[in-house]
Write a protein that binds this DNA or RNA. Structure first.
Length: 155
DNA sequence: GCCAACGTTGGC
DNA sequence: GCCAACGTTGGC
């Protein structure tokens, strides 16, 4: 079992939207490295749900991976901002898994709180220049964020 | 294959 | 709104 971090701009799709919908497919990621991480995801993996471009930015909850990565439907949709003219049904370019809502934290674990933690110094999302919207997280870092959040979920 | 120009991300 | 970091594009 692996652990991940998924960024979302709450203006686009927030933890509250996710809590309401219960499940979604993680479409719209258009970065090869992020895509490759999604292809590594397995059913049952857990992910930190992170608000970027938010006030404050930080981890707001937990998601569970419920399918292997499959073709992102918007790459074929000419009207979508995520349309990719180079993608075809026979050879799709972009893939994403289904995810299910697990929990919303009572309080956000803000980016500044993450940065203040000595135990999280090496966490990928905190490294300089890390703009990837999908990142692997170690089990130790994942558990520490859950501890900081007072999460109901345990790992 | 180099690299300048350009676009995007995302914290601040 | 600024801008650093970094990915992508396309001319050569």
């Amino acid at each position: 079992m692996n652990f991940w971090l998924l960024k979302s701009e709450p203006g686009n799709y927030s933890i509250d939207d996710f809590a309401r919908e219960k499940a979604t497919d993680w479409t719209g990621v258009r970065n090869y490295q992020a895509r490759n991480f999604m292809k590594e995801m397995e059913v049952g993996d857990l992910a930190l749900f992170y608000h970027s471009n938010a006030e404050p930015p930080g981890v707001t909850g937990i998601a569970k991976i419920t399918s292997l990565a499959k073709p992102d439907r918007f790459q074929f949709d000419r009207k979508s901002p995520y349309y990719d003219a180079k993608a075809t049904r026979d050879s799709p370019i972009w893939f994403c898994p289904d995810i299910a809502f697990v929990e919303k934290f009572d309080d956000i674990v803000s980016l500044s709180a993450l940065r203040a933690s000595a135990k999280l110094k090496e966490m990928g999302v905190l490294q300089k220049g890390s703009r990837l919207s999908v990142l692997p997280v170690s089990k130790a870092h994942f558990s520490e964020v859950l501890r900081m959040a007072g999460a109901r979920s345990k790992v």
